[in-house]
Write a protein that binds this DNA or RNA. Structure first.
Lengths: 77, 77
DNA sequence: CTGTAGACTTCCGTCGACC
DNA sequence: TGGTCGACGGAAGTCTACA
């Protein structure tokens, strides 16, 4: 498992929990919808600023988002 | 304060605490020394994979690194 | 040991369109 | 609503070299 794939899974989960569509998240985060789609599918790797932006839109701390990613990455080892 | 500037400050602090030179960190993380230099000065924004790579070299969890960044960012608000 | 410059390759992130 | 395609500008990250 790659970090970007796990990040995509976590992002999708958090987005669903916030009851947002990709389009809705794209709108409030001011990121492109196709980019959100690629992030969720692990086709793109976000920069630190993108991580912070998405986190605030999902009402979660960046460190908590990363923590979930790191826990999931560790579980694959 | 921008996120990348704060990240650079935290990165430098952690590197010094690990008693590593930029060159040493570049070597073990397999990143370019000039890139490490620019990261520390906030001239570049790391992607999530770079954050994970640097964290493991600094013996810290990615989420803890981000946590310090987010705390410092918040302190400027 | 660190900063920076330039030239380079790869990829982030945008945009419009279609399924 | 989400996946994907192609084109694009700009930025991530490498490498050499010099102060």
């Amino acid at each position: 498992m790659t970090i970007e794939k796990v990040f995509g899974e976590v992002l999708k989960k958090k987005r669903i929990e916030s009851e947002l569509s990709q389009e809705g998240l794209a709108y409030i985060s001011d990121l492109d919808r196709s980019f959100i789609s690629m992030l969720e599918r692990g086709k793109r790797k976000p920069t630190i600023t993108t991580i912070f932006r998405l986190s605030s839109c999902l009402n979660i701390k960046p460190s908590e988002l990363i923590k979930e990613v790191e826990a999931k990455v560790d579980s694959y080892k």
